[in-house]
Computed example of a mutant assay.
Amino acid sequence: MNSLANIIHVSLLSIMKNKRRNIFTMIGIIIGIAAVITIMSLGNGFKQSANKEFSNAGASKGAALIDYLPQDFNATNRNPFTDADIDLARQVKGVKDARIKEDDTFGLSSKASTEKKEANISVVKKKAVESPEKGSGFTEDDNMMESRVATISSSVADELFKGDAIGKTIYIDGMGFEVVGISNHAQIQNIVNIPTRTVKHYLPNLKSGSPQLEILFDEKENKKTIANDVADKLNRSGSASGFGEYQYTDLEEMMKSVGKIFDSITYFVAAVAGISLFIAGIGVMNVMYISVAERTEEIAIRRAFGAKSRHIEFQFLIESVILCLIGGIIGLILGILIASLVDALTPEYIKSAVSLGSIILAVGVSTFIGVVFGWIPARSASKKELIDIIK
């Protein structure tokens, strides 16, 4: 009976002998672990999504972005990154290459016109807009066929057509587009949604209202130093240096800070959810005390055959750990399923990511509960002497 395999076998038989009681005992552990895993998976998903957005915005190790802030945002748009500015950036020591990176997240600046009116707009590239507030919108087939169609915001419709825009034609950069829907955007006012391939084909000259200069260098180089040197050189000799300021923002540091905030929130909420594990541990201790009381004869027989106190203690301790591990594994699976379900129901807003650390945490916490809350009953069982049991 001293071998670990035999101890585990006896423990499983004991757990199966009282299935209903042990299942109810495990429910607390299952709920606690599932809650912790769900929260950590969603927290990791948010963190990965944020890191991806920062990377897309220039937070990667081998690249940095230089922004331009004009003194007067209402002034006529000036191109702050000319070919001469790009050549200046390439002259800075450590820079391998420089190029324009245009962020069209908030639209490409342009003007929309009819025969009599004109309006400032932001052109947003979309693969499809199938459910606008008014009209039919356009589909992915329109995108593939590079159809000259567009949906416009209500503000543009009111300004150009007094609201009656469906079926009318607007002109952008000399090209006509049929209005097939009115669809507003949460972040931008005067928007015009046009199929992505159509924009690339018919409106290749549209520029972002906030272009950035992307500089590339070896990952071993000091990113911050090189980027600041480029910004300083452009502020001295750049084509738009007298009308605004070139500056570098360390997005990598911001990404780390945001990651720390996400981790802090995730661990705090997970810790609150994990309070139920303490209650579950009390339940495990109670069940183990009952098991010790019910198996007094077994303890007596083992004592008669020469089992020592540590053998008895180890037997009951292993039973407690196995009971908690089973609950922990079920909770882990349940937590992953819940996180995946939330992910599936809200694919555009919430992403889940189960990490190896979460799995190790679930197994580790379950084992810890089994050891901590099973040790006292196991110790109680080990102190039972054969003479005391016979009396």
Results as ranks from 00 to 15, higher is better:
residue 214 E to Y: 14
residue 216 L to D: 04
residue 219 E to T: 08
residue 219 E to P: 03
residue 220 K to Y: 13
residue 220 K to R: 07
residue 222 N to Q: 13
residue 223 K to I: 09
residue 226 I to A: 13
residue 228 N to G: 12
residue 228 N to F: 09
residue 233 K to A: 12
residue 233 K to M: 07
residue 236 R to D: 00
residue 237 S to F: 05
residue 238 G to F: 07
residue 238 G to H: 08
residue 239 S to F: 09
residue 239 S to A: 15
residue 241 S to W: 12
residue 243 F to E: 03
residue 244 G to E: 13
residue 245 E to M: 13
residue 245 E to Q: 14
residue 248 Y to G: 05
residue 249 T to Q: 14
residue 250 D to F: 06
residue 250 D to I: 07
residue 250 D to L: 10
residue 252 E to P: 03
residue 254 M to G: 11
residue 256 K to M: 04
residue 260 K to C: 02
residue 261 I to F: 00
residue 262 F to S: 01
residue 263 D to E: 07
residue 264 S to D: 02
residue 265 I to Q: 01
residue 265 I to N: 01
residue 266 T to W: 01
residue 267 Y to V: 02
residue 268 F to Q: 06
residue 270 A to G: 09
residue 271 A to T: 12
residue 272 V to Y: 01
residue 272 V to L: 15
residue 273 A to D: 03
residue 275 I to P: 02
residue 275 I to M: 06
residue 278 F to S: 14
residue 279 I to Y: 11
residue 280 A to S: 13
residue 285 M to G: 14
residue 287 V to P: 09
residue 290 I to E: 07
residue 290 I to N: 09
residue 292 V to W: 10
residue 292 V to P: 06
residue 298 E to C: 09
residue 298 E to P: 11
residue 301 I to K: 00
residue 302 R to A: 00
residue 304 A to P: 07
residue 304 A to M: 14
